[in-house]
Design a protein around this nucleic acid. Structure first.
Lengths: 221, 221
DNA sequence: CGAAGACTTGAAACCGGTCAACTGGAGTGG
DNA sequence: CCACTCCAGTTGACCGGTTTCAAGTCTTCG
């Protein structure tokens, strides 16, 4: 299936109707799309770049709950206030629209409801998978799971499975996997020494051909 | 707000219409409602008892992603196959109906769509909170967070905030918090020795009056 | 070329895990 | 009625993977 964004679909079909409803916007790396506690009346669709979602404790400890890439939605299934923060990891382009306008779209395009539920279902399944990772996997399994996730999402965007380009820092990877930056770095080095992967640059991972990433990420030797 | 189940609401209003659609059922403790990989065509509403949802790794390591109590839904936002297993912790009574029948209900009761999205949104927020717990909290913070969650959910069902009745075993608590049963036990003992709580029986926790559980669960001294 | 920041590497400490023994209450049967 | 068994929960001693603290190295960019 071909990769596409919600916005581009809308453009093709209902451009005039949606003029003044859908807005395009650019956001610089490290700036917020919104923060925990902000009222959630906007929905975003990522056009380009990487966004991180996270929650923090009072003393600063942080857990990244997900990364967003082109085509992904943000804020769709959020009611009331945002319960997490969204920050641009790289420079980002998004399209945004008011949630109340989406209700209007529901009436005209009832299939959107189904699509929305599918997205919510996928998000929840990913969240449960991440709980398994955070609660029960070793550092090495977490790193391999992370590489697998990044590789599969790149493929869904039409990119090759390997090399994997990591647009986020070691600190972000650590905050996503519930580890420290040192453990992330050490574990990658160990995998490199084992011949599982190559690291020509810190942000580029080349997987060894024939390595069963999925099995290794689940602890199957 | 008064506690009620979806089923009881339906009963009052649309009993005849739904005859043959909604079924009541009893399930013994430790038996499955469904397992990971089963096709997801049923939706459940818990009437009585406790249910656990979990995912496992090939070697048996298990992460419980949530507990369900009377009034809670199960399978609502699941598309395709279940990506997790659901098992009765205690004897359980549920009401069940086919998801395809729910689509019919959508047409007659459009507010259900909104309610559905609210449930999905709440589930996702809880999942993110749990990721923060699993990725970044200490054993003591996890136990206190757990007690807080159990207490608040009991209150939503019209029960007092304390004493807290734990219907699940130490093993289930451990699998929910990403710990071992020994650490769960030790941490509870430590909190008892500090005077934070009393443990008249393993499944009954009495919180010290005036103790700020919410703050302690987030690491505020 | 120099500075700043990201990443890596090393050594030591520590929190929670592992392994093992003990306790206590519920249920059973002599 | 009491001894026995069973199993969940508790407690203790030790271990080890990950964190912490502290240097190093590499890259980028002015």
């Amino acid at each position: 299936m071909r990769h596409f964004t919600f916005c581009s679909v809308l453009q093709g079909k209902e451009l005039e109707q949606l003029a003044g409803i859908v807005h395009r916007d650019a956001t610089a790396a490290h700036s917020f799309l919104f923060q925990e506690g902000d009222p959630a009346h906007e929905v975003f669709n990522i056009l380009d770049g990487t966004v991180k979602l996270y929650k923090s404790l009072p003393d600063g400890r942080t857990q990244i709950t997900g990364f967003l890439f082109p085509g992904d939605f943000l804020g769709l299934s959020t009611k009331g206030d945002y319960s997490y923060s969204a920050e641009a990891v790289t420079d980002v382009r998004v399209c945004r629209f008011q949630k109340r306008d989406m209700t209007v779209m529901f009436k005209d395009y009832p299939k959107l409801v189904d699509r929305l539920l599918t997205i919510a279902s996928d998000e929840l399944a990913a969240a449960q998978e991440q709980m398994l990772l955070l609660g029960r996997k070793t550092a090495q399994e977490r790193i391999l799971s992370f590489l697998r996730i990044m590789s599969e999402r790149a493929q869904r965007r039409g990119q090759p499975a390997s090399p994997i380009h990591l647009s986020m820092s070691r600190a972000d990877i650590a905050d996503y996997l519930g580890l420290t930056i040192e453990t992330v770095s050490r574990t990658l080095t160990k995998l490199k020494d084992k011949g599982v992967l190559k690291l020509p640059r810190p942000q580029e991972v080349i997987l060894a051909a024939g390595y069963d990433l999925a099995a290794a990420a689940e602890g199957d030797a």
